[in-house]
């Protein structure tokens, strides 16, 4: 365990060095946040019918998505791992007396946690201070706040399990762009980052119930704004745990399956 934590620490500290990149990320996130919010404002003003979320919770939902974007998006590529696969340096990884799945898991964990730490805090602080309709509001209650934090942590473990799965699939297909890219886009769509899940067309909403993606960020953020109550939130938390277990199991098994038939071509 200690070895894996060292991987985490190493990546975490390295990630903290990239402050200029974080600044650029923050400005993009702000811009996108404002555009999304204004689009929804325009819809709401001309709107009719029953709305699944009121405007102030929707605004908070959008800002939380933007603040934690670096953590929750599937569009994340650990170039180091992909390069290892391409160049054959993976053989060095294989001679280490540790489990390669957990090694990769903790590397990605460190990287993504440091990325999000640099980006989320400034965004959250500024958006809380923004004037009325544009601001990130405070959590609906103290209990909801605690529950949403716990659920976000499990959600982040879930997305990292998925992010570890992608290079493992690449080991199988030897093509990082193909299947994985298609998978990533669909996963991002279904996790509610682009459109909040309550706004999905009914069919898609039904499909997404049976998939793990809405348990990454949608659940914690909707608990935060009060769109999901504490009782349902606790049930969601249970489902999150189950998915986390399933994805890690799949990743672990697939990795072992791959390692039996991996061929390193010289190098």
């Amino acid at each position: 365990m200690k070895a894996y934590l060292t991987y985490f620490k190493l990546k975490f500290i390295t990630g903290l060095q990239y402050r200029a990149a974080a600044l650029a990320g923050i400005s993009t996130q702000f811009f996108f946040g404002f555009v999304y919010i204004m689009v929804y404002f325009a819809f709401y003003k001309s709107g009719s019918g029953t709305l699944p979320m009121d405007m102030s919770s929707l605004t908070s939902y959008i800002w939380l998505n933007q603040a934690f974007y670096a953590l929750i998006t599937h569009f994340y590529k650990d170039n180091e791992i992909y390069n290892m696969i391409k160049t054959g340096n993976i053989s060095y990884e294989l001679i280490r007396p540790k489990n390669i799945f957990y090694m990769w898991y903790f590397k990605i964990l460190g990287q993504r946690y440091s990325n999000v730490l640099l980006r989320s805090i400034p965004i959250i602080v500024v958006t809380i201070l923004l004037p009325e309709p544009y601001n990130l509001s405070l959590p609906i209650s103290f209990n909801a706040f605690i529950l949403s934090i716990i659920s976000l942590i499990i959600g982040s473990l879930l997305i990292i399990a998925l992010s570890t799965l992608y290079p493992i699939i690449t080991l199988l297909t030897m093509n990082e762009k193909g299947v994985v890219n298609i998978f990533v886009v669909i996963a991002d769509l279904l996790s509610g980052i682009i459109v909040p899940i309550p706004f999905f067309p009914p069919i898609l909403r039904k499909i997404s119930i049976f998939l793990p993606f809405q348990y990454i960020s949608d659940l914690p953020f909707r608990i935060y704004v009060g769109n999901i109550n504490i009782h349902d939130g606790l049930i969601g938390l249970g489902i999150q745990f189950i998915w986390l277990f399933i994805i890690i199991l799949i990743g672990y098994k697939l990795m072992n399956y791959n390692l039996k038939r991996v061929v390193v071509q010289g190098g």
């Binding site: 689009v39 819809f43 001309s46 709107g47 019918g49 067309p201 898609l204």
Partner: peptide, 8 residues
């Protein structure tokens, strides 16, 4: 597309 299913 999905927002226009909720709004006209």
């Amino acid at each position: 597309l999905s927002l226009f299913t909720k709004f006209s």
